[in-house]
Amino acid sequence: MQVKYCSSCGHLLVKRDIDGNNRIACPECNFVFWGNYSIGVGALVLKDNKVLLVRRAIDPGKGLWTNPGGYIEQHEPIEQTVVREVLEESGVSAMVKEVVAIRDLPRDIHNLYVAFSMEYIEGEPCPDGMEVDAAGFFSLQEIEHMNVAGFTRWLVDVAFHGKNQGLIVDQNPIVPLTGYSLFRVSTHL
């Protein structure tokens, strides 16, 4: 779907050269349409050397096993999104430990996916009955015989074989930045 009207003043948009790129912009105000973007999150929750997976009950990927995840809501910090998605899809409570992988998928709606390693807190896996029809913790051996999505297989490899600590939540940045979610490499060796 192509954007046709300015979301600020309602004027018909035109193509203009902006910083050497042909962009859709408003000829009457300063509005520039920079593109469509979506940000997804995924959880890698480990418990007893098993990873939490859910089976998709809807498309895309109906019938495939994936790690729990979803899309951020406007004004929702990314680390709260992944906690919410794990709880909604599997009934499991988990806490963000670190960012362990990022997938960039440039297309008409440019998709960025951030994968988090998460610490299991409590709960037995239980599907939500809408997006997910099964949930559980599975070993690498069990996963080999399951219908697991390719990208999830890659993430499971990251979860079990990642050698370095990922980006951790910066709870105490050197400068107060209210409203930001900040992640950094650990300063601990």
Rank of each mutant, 00 (worst) to 15 (best):
Q74C: 12
N21S: 15
S7Y: 03
R23Q: 12
G40S: 06
L52I: 12
A57Q: 11
G42W: 02
G35H: 03
G42D: 05
L64D: 13
E89L: 00
I58A: 07
T66A: 08
T81R: 01
D59G: 06
E89K: 08
L44D: 06
K62V: 09
V41L: 02
S93Y: 06
L64A: 11
E79Y: 12
A94T: 05
G63E: 10
W65D: 06
N22D: 15
C29R: 08
G35W: 04
L13W: 05
E76M: 02
E89Y: 01
L53S: 11
G35N: 03
N36G: 12
G20S: 09
S7T: 06
S8L: 08
V82R: 04
R23K: 15
N49P: 10
I18R: 14
A57R: 13
Y37M: 07
Y71M: 12
Q80C: 08
R84F: 00
N22T: 15
C26M: 07
V41F: 01
I72K: 04
R56G: 01
V41D: 00
H11V: 14
W65I: 09
L64Q: 13
R56Y: 00
S7A: 03
G63P: 09
V32A: 04
G10V: 04
V45P: 07
N21W: 14
E28K: 15
I39N: 02
G10I: 07
K50F: 11
I78E: 04
L64C: 10
A57P: 11
I39D: 02
E79I: 08
E76A: 00
I24A: 05
N67C: 15
K47D: 05
E73H: 01
T81M: 00
E79M: 06
G63C: 06
I72Y: 03
L12D: 13
D17V: 13
L52W: 08
V14R: 11
I18T: 13
Y37G: 05
N22F: 12
V86N: 05
V14K: 12
E89G: 03
E88Y: 02
I24S: 11
G91E: 03
L87V: 04
G42Q: 09
N30W: 13
R23M: 14
N36R: 15
G63D: 10
Y37A: 06
D48K: 11
D59Q: 11
K50L: 09
Q74W: 11
S93A: 03
L52P: 14
T66Q: 12
L12W: 10
I39W: 01
L87R: 09
F31P: 14
A57S: 13
S93K: 08
S7F: 01
D48N: 14
A43N: 06
P27R: 10
A25G: 07
I58M: 09
G70C: 09
K50D: 10
R23P: 12
I39M: 08
S93P: 02
W65H: 09
L87S: 04
R84W: 04
S38A: 13
E73F: 00
G40L: 04
E85A: 02
Y37W: 03
V51C: 07
D59I: 02
P77W: 00
L12M: 11
L53I: 13
R16C: 10
G69F: 08
V45H: 00
F33N: 10
K15F: 08
K15I: 08
G20A: 09
A57N: 15
V83S: 06
F31A: 13
V14G: 07
L53Y: 11
E85I: 04
S90A: 14
A94L: 02
I58H: 05
R84N: 01
A43E: 03
L64R: 11
